[in-house]
């Protein structure tokens, strides 16, 4: 028996798990009552009406319209209740709140890959903030897989060439196993992952520390495309909305007020964190979003710097 007192169900650790459990327990209870009634009646009849004489032929049973009607109408009402109730919960399960935190999930033979909005990628270990809706955007690289966390009561197939999603909001801190439930070959049963549901602060620290493993240059390159710096800055010498960034390091820049400045680390750093402090000649101030820099971690900023300086 589980911690929650149920023989059948594992711990309920997501916001809607207990709704699913209520349904499950309801069907279980009603079924058990019906089952006992049917089997009990059967056993009673077998004993009560056992054959006493070989020549005895009972009178034919009469068809009872009423009984037939009851045995059709009653279950129909019951299943309609079930359907409606199930439908309501289903809607909850299939509609992720708009402010959900999104994690990209890739199923591969035979591991799970998780990618966070800041570019951090983990294998088989997924961290999620407690009490915050998390939406998984999933796809497969090779064959079908299926993402299943029993304690969250979520499952969905993961398919090549197509995105599928599940969402959940972890409500209890802990570690929960991720299973692959769509047969995917030799190591299907070894395609296990783990969700770590941790308080949000802890989650944020974890996420930032994840950068540590990535070489600065790679981190910078990733941030550059993730923050869409490349939408305004070309790195091949062409002009977009902003100046090209290749070959920037070390050259002397003319600013819109006519002064010049050497593009050293401090200058590049300032240009990212406070774009309008010094505006390059020929470009309008205020175009580059000033908020971009604020959300960068120090290490990400260092990465960007490294990356920009590496561009020739």
């Amino acid at each position: 028996m589980g911690e929650n007192g149920s023989v059948f169900l594992p711990e309920a650790s997501s916001s809607f798990a207990s709704e699913v459990d209520a349904l499950f327990n309801f069907v279980l209870a009603v079924s058990t009552v019906f089952f006992i009634a049917v089997v009990g009646t059967m056993i009673y009849f077998v004993i009560r009406y056992r054959r006493r004489s070989h020549s005895f032929v009972p009178a034919p049973g009469k068809d009872s319209r009423l009984l037939e009607l009851v045995s059709i109408v009653f279950p129909t009402i019951l299943v309609l209740i079930l359907f409606t109730w199930g439908f309501q919960v289903f809607i909850t399960l299939s509609t992720a709140p708009p402010d959900s935190y999104e994690i990209r999930v890739r199923g591969k033979q035979w591991f799970w890959e998780f990618e966070y909005p800041n570019g951090v990628v983990t294998v088989n270990e997924m961290y999620v903030p407690l009490n915050k809706p998390v939406r998984l955007k999933m796809s497969a690289e090779d064959v079908l897989h299926s993402f299943f966390v029993p304690e969250f009561r979520v499952k969905h197939d993961v398919i090549p060439n197509r995105y599928t999603t599940v969402w959940f909001e972890a409500t209890k801190a802990g570690e929960y196993r991720i299973y692959c439930t769509e047969y995917c070959g030799t190591q299907h049963s070894a395609m296990l992952g783990m969700v770590h549901a941790v308080p949000e602060a802890e989650f944020n620290t974890w996420l930032q520390n994840q950068d540590q493993d990535i070489p600065l240059l790679d981190l910078g390159e990733r941030i550059f495309s993730q923050y869409a710096c490349n939408a305004c800055h070309a790195i091949d010498g062409t002009r977009k909305i902003g100046p090209q960034l290749n070959g920037l390091a070390g050259i002397t820049r003319t600013l819109d007020d006519g002064s010049t400045v050497v593009a050293d680390d401090s200058y590049i750093r300032e240009s990212i964190l406070d774009p309008n402090a010094k505006v390059v000649d020929g470009f309008a101030p205020g175009l580059m979003p000033a908020a971009l820099g604020a959300s960068l971690t120090p290490r990400q900023l260092d990465g960007l710097l490294e990356y920009i300086k590496s561009l020739e």
């Binding site: 699913v20 069907v27 199930g86 439908f87 399960l93 299926s146 969905h156």
Partner: peptide, 19 residues
């Protein structure tokens, strides 16, 4: 049959499918 009815309920099937 009863477990079949159970599996017909959408959210329950989501949990039990392929187990």
């Amino acid at each position: 049959g009863f477990t079949g009815i159970m599996l017909g309920v959408l959210p329950i099937d989501i949990h039990l499918h392929d187990t």
